[in-house]
C-alpha cells in the first residue's frame, strides 16, 4: 500500500506544466490526488513524474461569463458545494457535490480531476452530460472546447491527449424555466454510487416541457447519457405516467455490471428508480426520499 517511486515537480503556471508533461510521456498530472494517490498506493499506476498543477491560481476561479458559469479545474468539490454563484446558476451541480465522496475528500478533490478521471460512478460527469456542459482544455497547441457528450469515453477514457489539461468547465446558467433533479443510492453517503441520475430540463411559461436530458450514474462502462428521455417528456406537462415511461425508455437497454453491490438487474432497477425520483423532483411531482421510504 505504498506508492512506487516517482519524481515530483510543481508547475507554477500552465506553460510550465505543458513543458514538464511534454518532456516525459510517462508523466502524470496530479491535482487533488484523491483518485490518483489511492491508485498509486494500490500500484495501479506507476508514472515516472507527477506534475502538480494544484498551485496554478488561474485555474481556481468560478465566475459568470454572460449566460454561462465557468468553473475552473482546480475548484474543489467543497467549493462547488458552497459557492454562491454555483448555488444560484447551477443548483444541480451544488446538490450533486454533496454526494461526491466524503467531506475530507471534498476538501482536496478538484472538479477538473473528477472530470479528467471520468469514472462512470462519479456524479459530476453525469451532471455535465445532463446540463450539456462544455469542457475547456488547453495544451501548448492551444485551447479546445468539447461537448461533455464527446469528452467522456468508456473505462476512464476521455478525449484528453497527453500534455493537455482540463482548464475549466462551462455550464449554461439557469433561469426561471430551468428544472433539475438529482437522486442517488449508495451504501453510505459519500461512497461511490450503486446507481443514480441527474436531470436537467426546461419548461415554458405554461409549464410545458421544452427540453429534457439526464446523465446516469454507474450505469455503464463510462459516464452515460440517458438517451431518448426527451421523447416522452417534451411537449407535455409532465405527469407521473410520463416520468415512468421516460424511465422505461432510458433504462431498457442498460446492462450495468454485476458487482459486490448487486446484480446487473438490481442495479438497473436502482438507476431507474433514481431517474424516476430525479424526474419527480424536476417536474414538481410527489417527492420520495430513499432514506425515509422503503420504495
Amino acid at each position: 500500500m505504498k506508492p512506487p517511486p516517482f519524481d515530483y515537480a510543481v508547475a507554477s503556471d500552465l506553460n510550465e506544466a505543458f513543458a514538464l508533461l511534454e518532456a516525459d510521456e510517462d508523466a502524470k498530472v496530479i491535482a487533488g490526488g484523491q483518485s490518483l494517490i489511492p491508485l498509486l498506493s494500490l500500484r495501479f499506476a506507476s508514472p515516472t513524474l507527477l506534475v502538480d498543477i494544484s498551485r496554478i491560481r488561474e485555474l481556481r476561479a468560478i465566475r459568470c461569463v454572460g449566460e454561462t458559469l465557468s468553473i475552473g479545474a482546480l475548484a474543489r468539490h467543497s467549493d462547488i458545494e458552497t459557492d454562491a454563484a454555483v448555488a444560484t446558476y447551477a443548483p444541480l451541480l451544488a446538490a450533486a457535490a454533496t454526494w461526491v465522496a466524503h467531506p475530507q475528500i471534498r476538501n482536496r478533490g478538484t472538479f477538473g480531476g473528477a472530470i479528467a478521471h471520468s469514472d462512470s460512478a462519479a456524479e459530476f460527469p453525469a451532471v455535465l452530460l445532463a446540463m450539456g456542459a462544455t469542457i475547456v482544455t488547453r495544451s501548448s497547441a492551444g485551447e479546445r472546447r468539447t461537448a461533455a457528450r464527446d469528452f467522456f469515453g468508456s473505462h476512464f477514457q476521455t478525449s484528453l491527449q497527453h500534455g493537455e489539461l482540463v482548464t475549466a468547465v462551462e455550464v449554461p446558467g439557469g433561469d426561471a424555466g430551468t428544472r433539475w433533479g438529482f437522486s442517488e443510492f449508495a451504501r453510505r453517503k459519500g461512497d461511490y454510487a450503486i446507481g443514480g441520475a441527474a436531470v436537467h430540463a426546461r419548461v415554458d411559461a405554461s409549464g410545458t416541457c421544452v427540453a429534457a436530458s439526464a446523465g446516469l450514474i454507474a450505469a455503464g462502462p463510462g459516464p452515460t447519457p440517458a438517451d431518448d428521455l426527451d421523447l416522452e417528456l417534451v411537449g407535455r406537462r409532465v405527469t407521473e405516467d410520463d416520468a415512468r415511461r421516460a424511465v422505461d425508455r432510458a433504462t431498457q437497454g442498460l446492462t450495468p455490471e454485476s458487482n459486490v453491490h448487486g446484480s446487473s438487474e438490481f442495479r438497473r432497477a436502482v438507476i431507474g428508480e433514481s431517474l424516476r425520483r430525479a424526474l419527480h423532483q424536476a417536474f414538481g411531482l410527489p417527492t420520495v426520499d430513499f432514506r425515509r421510504t422503503s420504495a
Partner: peptide
Amino acid sequence: EPVRSCTML
C-alpha cells in the same frame, strides 16, 4: 480543514 493524510503526499 479536515483531509485524509493517506491520500496526500
